[in-house]
């Protein structure tokens, strides 16, 4: 391997560079500001924007949560409609609508709305997320699906019910876990 002077020179250079690299890594201060902030802080930025989103959703939807607590379900739906005007694509509205419809006993509508919410934001079935709503979704699925199957047995080929059933299967699959 080291047959001539040039080989030895290269090897010495290699050892030296490795030593310098090791020294740099060992002695470098663990301070993100010394390096490119954008790269080093990416995880922190992601976490901050996520936390900001949670805080925003909590604040913006607080009136709905209060109304749900008071059992004012029709008013909660109207408030959700009002919020949807400002935040048209925000699926947190669909999640809360699912909750309202579940409390109203409208299981089909609850399944449909929850499926829309989970499709867009899987955090709702993630037990590690502050947005976790597995308990609610599990309750809707376990109550709604047997009813739905019975109705489909009575009306085979009803495409509207089949679509809701598909939403239910989707939620079941997400609740069961697995890779995304």
């Amino acid at each position: 391997m080291f047959q001539d002077r040039f080989d030895r020179l290269l090897f010495a250079g290699l050892l030296l560079t490795v030593a310098v690299l090791a020294g740099l890594l060992i002695t470098a201060p663990i301070d993100a500001s010394h390096v490119s902030g954008r790269v080093m802080d990416r995880q922190l930025e992601q976490e901050m924007s996520y936390q900001a989103r949670i805080a925003f959703l909590t604040r913006r939807y607080q009136p709905v949560i209060v109304q749900l607590g008071q059992g004012a379900l029709p008013e909660a739906l109207l408030t959700l409609e009002e919020i949807s005007r400002d935040l048209p694509g925000e699926v947190h509205s669909d999640l809360l609508r699912g909750d309202v419809f579940f409390r109203m006993g409208q299981l089909d509508r609850a399944l449909t709305n929850l499926a829309v919410a989970v499709r867009q934001n899987p955090d709702y079935v993630d037990s590690a997320s502050p947005l976790n709503q597995r308990q609610l979704i599990d309750a809707v699925v376990s109550q709604g699906m047997p009813q739905l199957r019975d109705r489909l047995r009575a009306q085979p080929g009803n495409r509207s019910l089949e679509q809701v059933l598909k939403d239910g299967y989707y939620l079941q699959s997400r609740l069961a876990g697995g890779c995304e």
């Binding site: 299967y169 079941q172 699959s173 069961a176 876990g177």
Partner: peptide, 8 residues
């Protein structure tokens, strides 16, 4: 149906 990480 309803299997983890699966579609139909």
């Amino acid at each position: 149906y309803g299997q983890p990480g699966a579609h139909t």
